[in-house]
């Protein structure tokens, strides 16, 4: 079994020359992305730019066609299971079972991740997302916003050090958005790394401290927020994506 190499200790995510093709369709055409531990990276891009594919490759559920991808120090091609232990994913889908209660859903995922002291951990996390009173309700009876909050609880249940968020704001109500921020703030205070995709500039700029723009399967622009001129980012974004305001 391969352990994290010492050289890559600083890097939560290392992507070099990543390509992914679905048959003759090229979704990713050579992505390079290095994310330091504790960074909060926001990736902008229009639909079809390859954002979701990139997140899925980082989450180890899509195999790269070529290139080198290491997440939490582990190569996603050879040891995806080790990477997965460190990853939490929030997407616009909740990954929750409709006919199970909130508690049963969390218990199921907790057992799959070998979460120690599961009962306590569930109690702790469910209180944090403000759903303690709904623990025994079936997921389908919960509102959309509540389901999204529960899905955040599910994603952080196993204390991941890397959070991957694929357009999390779609379907989140204001409360859940605030909740997500709070959870992520706690996480990044403790060396947690976040990679988020979105196509909404304002939202993304509020959240991240590194920004990148994806277009046509490549990272076309990448800068840290300190050195960032918002207007130039905006212009670049609109130029690259061909969308007018």
């Amino acid at each position: 079994m391969e352990g994290p190499s010492s050289a890559s200790q600083d890097w939560a995510i290392e992507v070099q020359g990543l390509t992914k093709s679905f048959g003759t369709h090229l979704a990713l055409r050579g992505v390079d992305l290095m994310v330091r531990r504790g960074d909060y990276v926001v990736i902008f891009g229009p639909n079809g730019a390859g954002k979701t594919t990139l997140i899925k490759v980082l989450a180890t559920i899509i195999k790269p066609s070529s290139g080198n991808v290491r997440v939490a120090g582990f190569n996603v091609r050879d040891s995806p299971v080790q990477s997965r232990r460190k990853i939490g994913v929030v997407s616009h889908q909740t990954f929750l079972y409709d006919n199970l209660t909130a508690l049963e859903n969390l218990k199921f995922y907790g057992r799959m991740y070998d979460v120690p002291n599961l009962e306590e951990r569930i109690h702790e996390i469910i209180t944090k997302v403000g759903l303690a009173s709904c623990l025994h309700r079936q997921v389908r009876t919960l509102s959309r916003g509540m389901q999204q909050r529960l899905s955040i609880a599910r994603a952080v249940l196993h204390r991941p050090s890397i959070m991957l968020l694929d357009e999390p704001e779609t379907g989140l109500d204001q409360y859940a958005t605030a909740m997500l921020r709070e959870v992520l703030d706690v996480l990044s205070a403790g060396e947690g790394t976040v990679v988020m995709t979105t196509h909404r500039l304002e939202y993304g700029l509020k959240m991240g401290d590194h920004v990148a723009i994806m277009a046509e399967g490549r990272i076309a622009y990448s800068k840290s927020k300190q050195s960032l001129d918002v207007d130039s980012l905006r212009q670049t974004y609109y130029r690259l994506t061909g969308t007018a305001r």
Binding site: R84, S91, F95, M112
Partner: peptide, 8 residues
């Protein structure tokens, strides 16, 4: 997808 994300 949720199942596939699990470390199994």
């Amino acid at each position: 997808e949720g199942l596939m994300l699990c470390p199994v």
